[in-house]
């Protein structure tokens, strides 16, 4: 049967057309995604990578809610200039507890993967509430509301930890029981800062990976 007469069959039969499209378009995805999902090195944490604490996870969810990843990448590429500017390049094993990943596609502001520990908590606090008071040329939005809202209102933190435990994150019963208490008395901005300060601390020079 020649190619075109085969095609005549397909284009006269809606069922065959649907099946053909599904089959042809699925191949590429299967070949790429299945091996990636089964590659252990991509789901094995580096030595210093740990799960997010209740406070850090809350901070991360605030980071997601405010769309920070729209302007800040979390991915230091293995390029001389990039390593010099931001620090050690990013390793896959540092992201195993990131659901979803936050690598970003645009750097309107600087990369944040190695921002942990670079600035003081107070600097972050002032910067988040009024960016232009510390960086004159900044075009970052101000986030004054983060200082007013209670971190515990961000969502049911013990439910979040339980959900992540189902997905394989090693939280203990104790972690989940104490989660609510951990968020008592702190504001959203504190949680976000805690997250920023632990970013990129999963790898230090000399680690094997």
């Amino acid at each position: 049967m020649s190619g075109l007469s085969l095609h005549k069959k397909i284009e006269e039969n809606a069922g065959l057309l649907i099946f053909g499209i599904l089959f042809v378009s699925a191949i590429g995805g299967l070949v790429q995604i299945l091996p990636i999902l089964n590659q252990d090195s991509l789901s094995t944490a580096t030595e210093n990578t740990r799960v997010y604490s209740a406070v850090e996870l809350t901070g991360r969810d605030i980071y997601i809610r405010e769309g920070c990843s729209v302007c800040h990448s979390q991915q230091v590429r293995p390029l001389i200039a990039e390593v010099e500017r931001y620090g050690a390049y990013s390793r896959a094993g540092e992201f195993v507890y990131d659901r979803p990943f936050l690598w970003g596609s645009k750097r309107t502001g600087p990369d944040l993967h190695r921002v942990g520990g670079k600035f003081s908590d107070d600097w972050h606090r002032i910067h988040l509430i009024d960016p232009r008071s510390v960086v004159e040329a900044s075009i970052m939005p101000a986030y004054p509301w983060l200082a007013d809202r209670d971190a515990s209102d961000t969502g049911n933190i013990s439910a979040k930890l339980s959900a992540l435990r189902i997905l394989g994150h090693p939280y203990s019963d104790e972690d989940i029981d104490n989660a609510d208490a951990d968020l008592q008395g702190i504001k959203e901005i504190d949680a976000l800062i805690a997250y920023l300060q632990m970013l990129g601390t999963g790898y230090s020079e000399g680690d094997s990976s």
Binding site: L42, S43, A92, E94, F95, Y97, R99, P100, F101, A163
Partner: peptide, 9 residues
């Protein structure tokens, strides 16, 4: 929370 994490996600 996404079913996939990090690089796989």
């Amino acid at each position: 929370y996404s079913l996939y994490a990090g690089a796989q996600d």
